[in-house]
Amino acid sequence: MSIQVFILSRLMVEKTYPYKLKKQMTEPIPLDELGGITESKLYYHFDALAKKGLIEPVEVIKEEHRPDKQVFEITTKGKEELPKKIYQLFKSANDINDIVIGLANLKYVDPEKVVALLNARLAEYKAHWDRIMNFENTSKRDRKSENLNELLVGYFTTKSDHTIYWLEEAIIQIEQGNL
């Protein structure tokens, strides 16, 4: 979903083709590597968006000794769907990684609605984590099992605290108009 939001948001700015978009993702930081986005994934999502009528090819660039490059632009339907896809990112977010593309494209959505979605998601996340932490396992464990349990509880507690902190920080930054 976030790859499609990324593609649609880039096409809101300019017509482009998958290879060019992939190159743009490497500078100034390697977003493609951080997000695990390969050229084949980009081509797949360009194709999927075209099949849904959200983007369309408008030009073919032919260069000698190079493959043809199909240039795409966003359609009216794509412009209507982009905010819905961004809201869906925020609605289904499990951590900050899931909303990075949405945060970068807040200009296409209502920030107050995003804050409401993130607050709801944060409340669900906290409630879920509280249920997990309040689960009492009364089974007898040996020392190695106990050590493993402590290690995992420590890891997941730290991860949960980190997620909660950054979701709250994102909400604050949106509310203050900083993003």
Rank of each mutant, 00 (worst) to 15 (best):
K85C: 04
M12V: 12
G154F: 02
V114M: 06
D98W: 13
E150A: 06
F72T: 12
L54F: 13
Q70Y: 14
L179S: 06
S40G: 01
D98T: 00
N97S: 10
H45Y: 13
K51Q: 13
E27F: 11
G102A: 00
M1F: 09
Y165K: 15
D47G: 14
T26S: 14
R10W: 07
I101C: 04
L42H: 08
S9Y: 00
L167H: 09
I86S: 04
E112M: 12
P18Q: 05
G154P: 01
T158R: 09
L11T: 07
E146T: 03
E73R: 13
E112H: 11
Y43A: 11
E27G: 03
K52G: 03
Y108K: 02
V114F: 01
K84L: 14
E14V: 03
L117I: 02
T138M: 07
E124I: 05
L122P: 02
K79Y: 09
K41G: 01
I99N: 02
R131L: 07
K91T: 09
L148P: 00
N134C: 06
E64Y: 11
E175N: 10
I174C: 06
A93E: 00
L106E: 04
T38A: 08
H128A: 05
K22S: 12
W129H: 08
L118A: 11
L8A: 08
T38L: 06
F90Y: 03
I55G: 09
R66L: 07
F135H: 15
S92I: 06
V71S: 08
S40W: 07
P57Y: 10
T75A: 02
G154T: 09
N119R: 15
Q4C: 07
R10M: 09
T26C: 02
G53A: 03
T158N: 05
N137P: 10
D32T: 06
I164G: 02
S40A: 09
K15N: 14
K77I: 07
I61P: 01
E112A: 13
R121V: 04
N134T: 09
N178Q: 05
L117R: 02
I7W: 07
Y44F: 14
M1W: 07
Y155L: 13
M133Q: 13
L11D: 13
L11A: 10
D47C: 11
V60S: 10
I164M: 03
E39P: 10
D47Y: 14
I99C: 03
L148E: 10
R10G: 02
K51H: 05
D98Q: 09
E27Q: 10
A93K: 01
I132N: 04
A127Q: 13
L179Y: 15
A123K: 13
T163V: 15
E150P: 00
K22D: 14
E175D: 05
N94I: 06
L117K: 04
G78E: 06
E64M: 12
L49P: 02
A170R: 05
I7D: 08
P28Y: 09
T158M: 03
K77T: 08
K62S: 12
K144R: 09
K126W: 01
L31A: 12
G78T: 07
K113Y: 04
H128M: 10
I37S: 00
G154W: 03
E27T: 12
